[in-house]
Design a protein around this nucleic acid. Structure first.
Lengths: 347, 347
DNA sequence: TCCGTATCTGCAAACGTTTGCATAAAGAAT
DNA sequence: ATTCTTTATGCAAACGTTTGCAGATACGGA
């Protein structure tokens, strides 16, 4: 008895002696329907406990009012921060968000693209896998003219809307800051270069070095996925022999934090013996002792821009939209204890 | 030209001179279809770039292969941790996850329930608002026999599947631990009692006190939303006059961390002058100095149980499923520097 | 009285699937 | 040859909406 009570607009129509089309229009506030009728219909809808069936409407309209989001994992600070605002913003626009994690697996990402297409999402927001260099699995969306917006981890040569942080400037600013604080031998811990943003941060790092007439030394640069374990291994390498570097620029806060912990454990003083800068301004950088200088990427702005771009593309769905230039979100260096103060004096 | 290429099973059927029903069955590996035909159909599907339309299938089958999730906010550690595993687990089962944030607003929660019902999700997982005491807005789901699983912030008298941490034991264990470490005057910072789990943690706190013949003193207990700002205000009250307490049990790690920061700033030594215990085992408790003792709630287990319950309820959809007892996920006290060692000696 | 206009409502098709039932084909048994 | 199975396929309805077009009603003006 309870389970069979799926009320539809047909029920409303019958109850009221109206046609389904009138009911449908009344519920959608179509101008051709009189105020009285609308009132009657809505009242009856409430009375019957009617709930629209979004799938039926979606099928008819060929739109789902749903956006798909693919990120490496929800548990990482930066994508999570963006997700929060994307979700809230979309909610305002009356859109749902289907969130999927690729777990940094290209294979999973490809699969997700397909199933999200099957769900007929009206748009897609993507921060790609570390190893995604070929983006052709997104072609289906292009072919069907469904907006795709990449953010943070974005493609280089794939024609699509892109919203990214100013990674070059981030790398440059972080490095220059260390130099200004007196560092002359700066380690750079980068992610794998298959991922664009690491390339650009590295370029910024190099540029800052050369502008300040410091040599770029290959052994001072590390490339690996920026996990805690890897960071630990790198820390050991870095501090294995004297003289160790006087600055570390990590392109990720997890790494920066891990390095800091290692230093503390080894009695290496931060910032006196070595200065540290991280990336993303993860809240954890603020509560650690000493607090860590980091490059803020304005996750809120980025999230808002992603939604704005999606809504824009959805409204004017013409191929030209894909030619919009990529948007660069600014960055800001947040200076903290790990890199400032205390004149440098190595033990 | 690109946009009109929405291939359907009708196209496949025409191309092959078969009927749509045969094509549909072939694609779904129906036993009545010969192997040859299946092969032919699938090949053609690939060739045409056919993608099933989940909305159409969902409309026909009355199931969306989608689960709705409502949490206060994604940016909070505990719900986020659960979300991660729920999402990954559901992905394995071939289900999507629509994630929504109530932002701790009852009104938004009610609205979300409705729109998720409209999306015809096959199930709902909910961690309620702080202020949700009346759960009747979930009735629609009950009426239509769609599974709802509450976790963490769960209802007390609303008949539904519930998966929660052992909050009483958590409160008890944390408090007893402080007592065992020598604390005799323990502040308890609780969330608003409209939310059940705080009631239970409080009960555990009281029980531990009385078991150890310590008095329960009203002024030592605070109730408010556990934000950073509120925690700061409370910290000021707590340490305003001598003698201040020798232990603080915060039911939230953000609060615990804030108290710790306050103490450091004021020169109050942790754990020598005051010992601190938090709740949820947020990773931040580990990297702060001193690291903070906290009650782990096994987010992974909880997430897995939520999915297991949902899948179970979806498979055997009979009203009895709602009578299953609530499941209690164990807790574990993770002892860290903020509460152990250093013999207590007040200045 | 008739027509024109404005306002409201209804008919029926369409969206892309799935599925109960009927039917066709092909072989096996008589 | 006829009947009976077995196996494979097709027909058509259904899921709950939306919407172009046609039709109905009411009103005022001539």
């Amino acid at each position: 008895m309870s389970a069979r009570s799926e009320k539809t607009i047909v029920d409303i129509a019958e109850e009221l002696g109206l046609s389904v089309s009138t009911v449908s229009r009344a519920l959608n506030d179509h101008p051709n329907i009189s105020a009285k009728t609308k009132e009657k219909v809505k009242k009856m809808a409430r009375k019957l406990g009617y709930r629209p069936n979004a799938m039926a409407a979606g099928l008819r309209n060929n739109k789902s009012k749903t956006i798909g989001l693919i990120i490496p994992r929800i548990s990482m600070f930066f994508p999570a921060a963006i997700t929060t605002v994307v979700q809230n913003k979309l909610q305002e626009y009356g859109y749902h968000l289907i969130i999927c994690q690729s777990n940094d697996s290209l294979e999973q990402e490809q699969e997700l693209v397909n199933t999200l297409y099957s769900a007929r999402v009206d748009g897609l927001a993507v921060s790609a896998t570390l190893s995604t260099t070929d983006f052709s699995h997104f072609d289906i969306f292009k072919q069907h003219n469904i907006p795709v917006v990449f953010f943070d981890r974005t493609p280089k040569d794939y024609q699509a809307k892109v919203i990214k942080g100013d990674d070059f400037l981030g790398g440059y600013t972080a490095t220059e800051h260390l130099i200004e604080q007196g560092c002359r031998d700066i380690v750079h811990i980068s992610g794998p270069l298959t991922c664009n943003l690491y390339k650009e941060r590295l370029a910024g790092y190099k540029d800052a070095l050369s502008k300040h007439k410091l040599p770029y030394k290959k052994p001072r640069v590390f490339f690996h996925e920026l996990t805690r374990e890897n960071a630990l291994a790198t820390a050991e390498k870095i501090f294995a022999q004297q003289p160790y570097p006087d600055g570390v620029f990590a392109t990720n806060d997890t790494t920066a934090i891990t390095i800091l912990e290692y230093c503390r454990k080894q009695g290496i003083r931060v910032p006196e013996d070595v200065k540290i800068v991280g990336y993303s301004n993860d809240p954890r950088t603020e509560i650690v002792t000493p607090s860590i200088t980091s490059v803020d990427q304005f996750s809120a702005t980025m999230g808002e821009r992603v939604v704005a771009a999606l809504m824009d593309l959805i409204q004017n769905r013409h191929p030209n939209s894909y030619r919009h230039p990529q948007e660069i979100v600014p960055i800001q260096l947040i200076k903290r204890e790990s890199s400032v103060g205390s004149p440098k004096k190595k033990k």
